[in-house]
């Protein structure tokens, strides 16, 4: 049995999961069960960061992946963000990097600028 804290939402349920049968306990929603299973088989995270922006009111534009990506790709995605620079105006939800690092996820703008 492995104990973990669910990170799907701020509630932070205390989960236990059987590593062989992948049976989860302690979750209060189905997303918790899915999280526990993924944590054992292939942990996923949403990556948030920023990219450089010209012509905006600030020098950084907040961005995030539009869905969770493999945890093992975190630093590779950060490098892709560092290499990226955009020009204002940008709208919230605009795709900044398509299929980032081959994960199938897009990096999207978090705000208008």
């Amino acid at each position: 049995m492995k104990e973990m804290i669910c990170i799907v939402c701020p509630r932070g349920c205390h989960l236990t999961i059987d590593e062989t049968t992948l049976e989860a306990k302690g979750n209060t929603c189905p997303r918790g069960e899915e999280y526990a299973k993924n944590e054992i088989t292939s942990p996923m995270r949403t990556i948030t960061g920023s990219v450089g922006i010209s012509g905006g009111i600030h020098s950084r534009l907040a961005v995030r992946t539009n869905r969770a990506v493999p945890k093992s790709k975190m630093f590779e995605i950060m490098a892709a963000l560092h290499a990226c620079r955009v020009q204002a105006p940008v709208k919230r939800g605009d795709v900044i990097i398509e299929n980032v690092c081959g994960t199938g996820a897009n990096v999207i703008a978090s705000r208008d600028m």
Binding site: C9, T48, A62, V63, R64, R92, S110, R111
Partner: peptide, 30 residues
Amino acid sequence: EAGGILNQCIHNGFGLHRFGEELSGPEYAG
């Protein structure tokens, strides 16, 4: 600009109760 501290809280985890989806701080403010 409006939005307060949310503008610098670029991590996600906001809005699950209010909007039923996980947003970053700037998105929630937006």
